[in-house]
Design a protein around this nucleic acid. Structure first.
Lengths: 137, 137
DNA sequence: CATGCTTGTACAATGTATATGTACAATAGT
DNA sequence: ACTATTGTACATATACATTGTACAAGCATG
């Protein structure tokens, strides 16, 4: 079975309202936090990922640049995007407040859309396991 | 102690990146879901809330209209905005997916910003209690 | 080392979203 | 009736998101 193309590393939902570049950033960040993308890993080129997702390569480039500014990636012309080791951030109160506010909005929206508290908690626990499974070692 | 103005029903963070009207929607929806704003309650006028928050009244009006379309409010010229009883939504898979995706992004962002898993879980539980405290009766 | 290809980047152009300024329509109170 | 209050409609200004196109830096092959 040769020539089987790998599935794209991320999958975005165009027409979801959320900007494409932000979706790319969010999903890649999740993979980076979980350790699924370890330092040294080379990301697909901006053009490759762009065609996979059906967006312009500059849109992917903006996502990569955002993550590079956060310290996750190293970008160089002609070489590509490589995951780098990133020193842990100190939790500032700003981030804490921002998180609290957004989480409240998200939970309220889910409840308004009919999701049961049980389903919400289940999802939370599942995602938590996924995100920290590598880090717990 | 007369003339003591009530604190605004919501508090938004201008310069937080998130659109003002979306922040208003999110916070009001949280109050509506929790039952803190029960059917029959009258919301502040668009102009009143606008000056409280330092935005234009049309911005508040857009937020109110959004919630009205979701079935939370009834809007009428000259009368104001009143909370109405809203029949519960059925949980569609669309909403479930959207929630999962956004929650994953939010948790990853929090972790990237240095928040510990413990702090994240604590916040989640606190908000959950707040959101469903009235509904559990 | 020269040439061509691959990679990320810069920048202008376009469309969409967000916020505002202003005027209007419907309702309530007098 | 009249006036004040309330949400609404619409045009305008500005910021954001996405794209088209051209460029700069690194790599590979001869």
């Amino acid at each position: 079975m040769l020539g089987m193309p790998d599935p794209p590393i991320v999958r975005i939902d165009l027409g979801s309202g959320a900007p494409a570049y932000a979706q790319i950033v969010a999903q890649l960040r999740a993979l980076l936090v979980s350790g699924a993308l370890a330092p040294g890993t080379r990301l697909p080129t901006v053009r490759q990922l762009a065609v996979d997702l059906g967006v312009h390569h500059n849109t992917v480039a903006l996502a990569y640049r955002t993550l590079a500014e956060e310290g996750w990636l190293e970008l160089r012309r002609g070489r590509g995007a490589v995951v780098v080791a990133r020193e842990g951030q100190r939790a500032n109160s700003r981030a804490q407040e921002e998180f609290s506010r957004r989480l409240e909005g998200l939970l309220a929206k889910a409840a308004a859309d009919g999701l049961s508290p049980k389903a919400i908690v289940r999802e939370f626990e599942a995602l938590g396991r996924e995100l920290w499974k590598e880090k717990r070692r």
